[in-house]
Amino acid sequence: MQKITLEKIIYFFTGSVPALGVTFAYVIVSMIFGTIIGTGLYRMKSSHSKVAGFLANLYVTVVRCTPSLVMLFLVFYGLPLLVGGEAGARMEEWPILTFVCVTFSIFIGASSSEIIRAAVEAVPAGQAEAGLSVGLSGMQTFRYVTLPQMLKNAMPNIGNTVILLIKEGALAYTIGLRDVLGQAYYLSGREMNAYAVSMYIALTLIYWPLTILLEHLFAAFERALTPWERKGKRAALRRTAEGGAKYAG
């Protein structure tokens, strides 16, 4: 029977928390590159070219049908082989973090292309036309009119993706990434996993508050980015109240 001790929990907690830097690094990098890939895929899908649309859909299907663990191993072991030669050999020296970022970027590319599509389609076409009609360029219309309204739509999905990614560190551990979880496993392994339960409790104490914090953070982002939504709710409430008063009177 293992003993759970506060002392060990604190030990694992304080020992693993610094590795959050690694977690944040791959989350941020993968989100950025994943969004870039996703934007490209979305543009291919919505272009007039049938070939581009087909390739984009192929990408999404293939990535969706590949288990994340398989993709991670394919990237980690396969990419250097694929590149081959001297360059491939040099790739094997790359930090593990790089391969993790590549893998997750590939995944987020696929999922974000759909998130972006849904977010764009939720903004009525007339919004962009109105932008053009006052003399804005296509880019300016996107920047000032479409994007802010898109973000409102995409924010919950972005938040979910980030939280999912943080937990996917468990996966990256299999190729040796020392993120929070990897670091905790490493510390635990040094003691023959005699205090594994304490370690898992420490991990829970890291992941829970972090996830809750992020959820609040993204909700706050969404509110900050969409002042018109709050006003809208107030207006709707006021209208209902007035309507009610009218009926009452």
Binding site: P124, A130, G131
Partner: peptide
Amino acid sequence: NYNLFNNK
């Protein structure tokens, strides 16, 4: 249908 910028 007006098409005012909803976010402004």
